[in-house]
Computed example of a mutant assay.
Amino acid sequence: MSKEDHVHMRKPITIGAAIKRRRQALGWTLQRVCDETGGALYTGYLSEVEKGKSMPSVDKAHAIATVLGTTIDQLIDEGASASTPQAPREHATRAPVVPWDQAAQWAQEPDISGLPSGTPWEVPLDSKSPRGFFLRLSDESMHAPAGPAFPNGSLIFVDPDLEHQVNDFVVGYDSDPTAPTFKKIVKHGTQSYLQALNPQFPAIQINGNFRVIGVVIGMTMRTSRGLIR
């Protein structure tokens, strides 16, 4: 073989070992990675990828990289150099979609072990809060016919570290921390209210017992066949 042939030879691209190192660094099982991708792959296939017996397609590699908080390029670099996982080149921190009855508890003391199996994790909005989390809306109370609207099925991002002010959208509870509500804080005279954006829902007067869990700073949603997923 000539020297020129050596120059043009490239090592085969492998990312299995890099995927396995990142997965183990997170303390995740094969099933956890598959669950986080939303069912884009299954454990037997992922195991084959990690062993280098199979190379994932671009869409599957992207799904794996995303849930592991990195990029395909970095997985390739780490696979080629056998280096330890590095910080991603793009913002890839993720926050969980917390059940409503766990929102208050998560805001006070985040504990991944307390989340249900298969909890989705999403890229958060503009927030540096380590306690930030998503909630999935399950009613139409904040879906307005005009102006700001939060449709049923969408995800709202809650920042527990922001101090709420009048006209903020907040998640909070009155007496039961396992039954929080999502509303806008408004003020009329000296009295504050929780206002739904949907005019069919009445405003609720705030008493001294209401506790704000966090301020809602944005919303995200995915659609499929005309439905919000």
Rank of each mutant, 00 (worst) to 15 (best):
S117E: 09
S57P: 02
L155G: 10
S141C: 14
T119Q: 04
L197C: 13
A17Y: 13
K53T: 03
I76Q: 01
R222C: 05
L26Q: 12
T37F: 09
K60D: 06
V98E: 08
V216I: 15
H188C: 00
H8W: 15
M9H: 14
A18T: 05
L30N: 11
R222H: 03
Q165M: 14
A179E: 00
N152Q: 14
A61V: 09
D126E: 10
P88E: 01
S83N: 12
A146K: 12
Q105R: 08
D111V: 07
P96D: 06
Q205Y: 03
P110L: 00
D111E: 04
F157Y: 09
L46R: 10
I13E: 09
L197E: 10
S138K: 13
C34F: 03
N198D: 11
A92Y: 13
L137C: 04
L46E: 12
K53Y: 07
L197G: 08
W121P: 11
L197V: 12
A203V: 09
A82H: 14
R225Q: 13
P12T: 00
H6Y: 05
A107I: 01
G79K: 08
K184G: 03
A107R: 04
G69I: 04
E90S: 15
S2P: 00
M1A: 14
V123D: 09
E4H: 09
E48N: 15
V212M: 02
W121F: 09
L162C: 00
N152S: 08
R21N: 12
E122A: 05
Q102W: 09
Q31H: 07
S129D: 08
M9L: 15
I72V: 15
D139H: 03
F169M: 06
R211H: 01
L227N: 00
P202W: 03
I112W: 08
G189C: 12
S129R: 14
I217G: 07
K184P: 01
Q195H: 15
S117T: 11
Q31W: 08
M142D: 07
Q24V: 12
Y193T: 09
T220A: 15
N198S: 15
I156P: 06
D101W: 03
S192I: 11
A203P: 12
S129G: 06
A95S: 15
A18W: 11
Q31P: 01
K51I: 00
E140L: 04
S57Q: 08
K53Q: 04
A92M: 15
M9Y: 15
S47D: 04
P160C: 05
R10V: 04
W28R: 07
Y42H: 05
T43M: 12
V158E: 05
I15Y: 11
D101Q: 09
V58K: 11
A65Y: 04
D35G: 02
G189T: 07
R94G: 10
V98W: 05
I217K: 09
I64F: 02
